[in-house]
């Protein structure tokens, strides 16, 4: 399988990339671990791929009261980042370590995964629970958007055709907070049949987000017991996991993620 004919251009900077993306049916490519796969299946046939993989948009840095993740940071780099080794952010590395396989983690990027918006992708749940905010750039403007407002449905986001994710900001939870990600994977694809991220904060508040169970990753309402909130959530059923079974998986991963996040919050003294 090879992709349909396509032209290729390497962007020299964000502005150049945005200029190139003016072409109809063009697509930005970073690590290509989602895009090349669907190009080979010819589900996607871009006219032009705009290579953004060499732009200076990678790395992890703590700035003031937030941690900034470059969209071109690979899963492997997230796992290795010392800035994320604290109980409050432990879910990020924990989640990244379970994505794809070693080869995919070496090449796949955080921003590429968010833009691809697979409804069973793992990291959106973690970033939703951590209240991440995206920085988006188009030729006209630079805007900030909570991740919770980014996904519209399967493989669909609010990202404009001529717009790129240029930053991901995660507000640092206060001391004595903990986070965790737990999933049950489809054994062949490795995608989540149900995945839950939990963030437990020092003030006792909890944020829980789910992936793999519906049309898009979802943050549960923060008030009350997340298991109660889960009851009113519509759950997807398919050949891999009928809705009733998937609901049980969802309950289990939510419970485990909350327990693990609570244990980590206690460690964080």
């Amino acid at each position: 399988m090879i992709p349909a004919p396509v032209r290729y251009a390497r962007a020299s900077g964000v502005d150049h990339a945005l200029e190139l993306l003016a072409e109809p049916d063009s697509k930005a490519i970073a690590g290509g671990q989602s895009l090349v796969a669907v190009m080979k299946l010819r589900i996607v046939r871009p006219s032009l791929v705009v290579d953004i993989s060499r732009l200076e948009l990678r790395g992890v840095e703590v700035a003031g009261d937030e941690v900034r993740l470059g969209p071109l940071t690979t899963w492997d780099e997230l796992i290795a980042a010392p800035e994320l080794r604290r109980p409050a952010l432990a879910a990020i590395g924990e989640c990244a370590a379970g994505i794809g396989d070693l080869q995919v983690r070496n090449r796949g990027t955080l921003g590429g995964s968010l833009a691809h918006a697979d409804p069973a992708s793992d990291m959106p749940a973690v970033l939703l629970a951590l209240r991440a905010v995206l920085e988006l750039r188009s030729p006209e403007e630079k805007r900030s958007l909570p991740l919770a407002d980014f996904f519209l449905g399967p493989f669909t986001t609010v990202l404009g055709t001529q717009e790129l994710i240029t930053g991901i900001a995660v507000p640092l939870p206060a001391a004595s907070s903990g986070s965790a990600y737990v999933s049950v994977e489809h054994p062949a694809s490795g995608f989540a049949l149900a995945g839950a991220a939990a963030v437990v904060r020092a003030d006792g508040s909890r944020a829980v987000a789910l992936t793999g169970v519906g049309a898009q990753p979802t943050l549960l309402p923060s008030a009350g017991d997340p298991l109660d909130a889960l009851e009113s959530l519509e759950i997807l059923g398919d050949g891999f996991a009928p809705a009733e079974y998937r609901r049980q998986l969802a309950e289990t991963v939510v419970r485990r993620a909350v327990e693990r996040a609570e244990a980590r919050a206690e460690e964080d003294t």
């Binding site: 290729y8 490519i29 671990q33 090349v36 796969a37 791929v49 995919v104 070496n106 090449r107």
Partner: peptide, 20 residues
């Protein structure tokens, strides 16, 4: 699998031009 700049990648899922 090959090594690209020292890291294992699946060469069926990398465009050759990206490895230039």
């Amino acid at each position: 699998t090959v090594l690209l700049d020292g890291r294992a990648v699946k060469s069926c899922t990398v465009l050759a031009v990206q490895a230039d």
